[in-house]
């Protein structure tokens, strides 16, 4: 578990340089509340307190990673209650929770604080004035995320604000764009994900099927006419990378059988693109994963590995 935490540190460090030190504070608040909430929930339910396993720390970091950097400092506390108490301990219990806790909390915050969650974006800093965004009145400088621009104003506006290909790819890949705290740098997320694969904590099946589906469907349906969408931009913007490597892959809420992992990933990717193009929100991976979460045990059951050769006559 602590390996995953380590893989989440580089994007966090980067966010400090992109959005200012406030991202660190938000993450710290989120992690602290998640750990506290985990301990409180476990105590209250008379279970063994297992905060030292690091899983609440991961939830805390991921929760902070999916909220905008300009929100008030107390918002993650609310998110933590939702993520840990409701998402993790009430809906299934540790190791058996149905939904990804961090995403459940994000969905909840989005519904209850829609303004903060959809407008507290910060533009990337162009100097190292990382303390300039420390105050609370940062909403004034809020900006729009690339996906929101693309959705409401179109591709021309996107190019005007963020540049054209291939510069826009580099900028986005490195993470110098508005977005949620931990989702901006495709590069660092990719490196973290590759390391987890190298250590065999995760496999390629979910990230590849999620990103592949997003890229393919965005290419087909994302442009003004069919087959003119920009697949690379689609996976580099929004939370696609973070979602594919660290959210959809969550051990507890994703399938374990390889074939079901592929189907699950394709489902996540397809719903993401559907929401992005047709739904009410600019980004859809959060809901896509939440929608696929409850399907994973079903997939696992349907696609159980084939037994070598069960006994004849069906006897067990």
């Amino acid at each position: 578990m602590w390996t995953v935490v380590a893989c989440l540190v580089p994007p966090l460090v980067l966010s400090v340089f992109v959005f200012g030190i406030r991202t660190l504070i938000i993450t710290a608040v989120s992690v602290a509340s998640c750990v506290a909430m985990e301990a409180i929930s476990q105590k209250a339910m008379g279970r063994k307190v297992t905060v030292s396993d690091g899983s609440a720390v991961i939830t805390g970091m991921l929760l902070a990673f999916v909220i905008p950097p300009g929100v008030s400092y107390w918002l993650p506390i609310l998110g933590a209650v939702m993520a840990i108490y409701i998402g993790k301990h009430l809906l299934g219990g540790i190791g058996y929770n149905i939904f990804n806790p961090a995403l459940l909390a994000r969905a909840f915050l989005l519904a209850t604080f829609p303004v903060a969650m959809t407008s507290a974006w910060l533009p990337p800093l162009h100097n190292t004035a990382i303390f300039s965004t420390l105050g609370t009145a940062v909403d004034a400088v809020s900006t729009a995320t690339p996906l929101a621009v693309l959705k409401t104003q179109g591709a021309a506006a996107l190019a005007a604000q963020f540049g054209t290909a291939p510069n826009i790819y580099t900028t986005f890949f490195l993470g110098w764009r508005p977005g949620a705290i931990g989702e901006t740098s495709g590069l660092l997320i990719l490196l973290g994900g590759l390391y987890l694969m190298y250590r065999r904590y995760i496999t390629w099946h979910i990230p590849v099927s999620v990103l592949g589906t997003i890229a393919l469907l965005s290419w087909i349906f994302g442009g003004p006419t069919h087959f003119t969408g920009d697949p690379l931009l689609a996976i580099l913007s929004g939370g696609a990378m973070l979602g594919a490597f660290f959210m959809a892959n969550d051990y507890v809420t994703s399938p374990t059988v390889r074939t079901s992992q592929l189907i699950y990933g394709i489902g996540v990717g397809a719903i993401t693109v559907l929401i992005r193009l047709k739904g009410g929100y600019p980004e859809g991976i959060c809901y896509a994963i939440l929608l696929m979460n409850p399907v994973s045990p079903v997939l696992d059951r349907l696609l159980k590995p084939k037994r070598f050769a069960p006994p004849l006559g069906g006897a067990k």
Partner: peptide
């Protein structure tokens, strides 16, 4: 440690 459900 605990199973991380990686499926290996």
């Amino acid at each position: 440690s605990q199973c991380i459900r990686c499926g290996w």
